[in-house]
């Protein structure tokens, strides 16, 4: 009996050792390339440190943060990011929900519509931005399409030139690229609702409008909240579209989102300390939304039992 227990303990020990062996490479990786860099970013943000400069970094405490909080360029970036995020994620959630509900209501071509709506997400963001740069050209398709709809031949809507329009253009590109992606998430959420619920509602005489608002919508509320936060976090991280637009001559101010500002501050201006402080602020904002996401996804679980 005692021997048996000892053997058992031996197996447990062996398992524990193998567990550590399997986990160790990733743990080492994450320490080196995730934890150390974020700690380092925080540390660097307390210094005045310049890239390529031979002077040793000077400790400045929270001065980088106080500088940023009074800097109009930083607040402009916060504003640009907020406008982009709000302007993108709300239409993304609303339209992907509508698309998903409409696609699910079809008996035929469900697969076709899913593939069609999803296909822009297959492109890389740089390719997407490159296509739209030509479409938004003064001679491009965007002007032709809008002028056809509004019957205003020959008007240039300055998609890449005026402040409001260049903001709208980045939102348009992002919306176009990701709406299908979120549609698929909603479709997966809706597909997990048991059919029997809809059939029961049908028998009780509900039309599809009522069935959607009384059954589908309440049951996909967790998916909706999850999609909202995921979309929001993704929008906060946007970089490629804005970068390519600025590279192609669009004004930087209106679309100078925080990530773009970090890149330019660090790489063009060589101000590593200030860029790190901005990174930490971005991290704090995202941490808040991730925390929100965790809370939301925990409190909103649906059970069909």
């Amino acid at each position: 009996m005692a021997r048996k227990r000892r053997v058992h303990r031996g197996i447990e020990r062996k398992k524990a050792i193998w567990g550590w062996i399997f986990v160790a490479p990733s743990l080492l990786f994450f320490s080196l390339f995730s934890f150390y860099p974020i700690a380092n970013a925080f540390y660097t943000s307390l210094f005045k440190k310049d890239l390529l400069s031979l002077r040793p970094p000077k400790f400045v405490g929270i001065k980088q943060y106080t500088y940023l909080l009074t800097s109009p360029t930083f607040w402009n970036s916060v504003k640009a990011t907020a406008i982009f995020t709000l302007g993108t994620f709300i239409p993304l959630v609303v339209f992907s929900l509508i698309f998903a509900a409409f696609i699910m209501s079809r008996k035929r071509f469900q697969k076709f519509f899913q593939m069609a709506y999803y296909s822009p997400a297959v492109l890389s963001s740089v390719v997407a931005a490159a296509i739209w740069l030509l479409i938004l050209d003064p001679r491009g398709l965007a002007n032709q399409f809008v002028n056809l709809l509004m019957n205003s031949p020959g008007v240039d809507h300055k998609w890449l030139a005026s402040i409001g329009m260049v903001r709208f253009s980045t939102i348009l590109v992002y919306f176009w690229k990701y709406v299908g992606y979120f549609t698929i998430i909603f479709i997966a959420g809706m597909a997990s609702i048991p059919r029997s619920l809809h059939e029961a509602a049908r028998i009780d005489g509900a039309n599809s409008w009522q069935a959607f608002w009384r059954i589908t919508f309440p049951l996909i509320k967790p998916t909706t909240l999850l999609v909202s936060v995921v979309a929001m976090i993704q929008c906060l991280k946007t970089f490629s579209t804005q970068y390519l637009f600025v590279q192609s001559g669009a004004p930087r101010g209106p679309i100078d989102v925080i990530t773009l500002n970090i890149y330019y501050t660090a790489i063009r201006d060589h101000r590593i300390g200030r860029a790190s402080a901005m990174s930490i602020i971005l991290f704090a904002i995202m941490l808040f939304f991730t925390w929100l996401q965790l809370r939301v996804s925990k409190s909103e679980e649906v059970s069909y039992m």
Partner: peptide, 27 residues
Amino acid sequence: FPFKGRNVVFLLIMTTMMIPFEAIMIP
């Protein structure tokens, strides 16, 4: 593989999901 500290390891790895690449690209 049950081992002591397994949950801590899992949690640690999960927290890295919250660190956006954009925040650590400079370091």
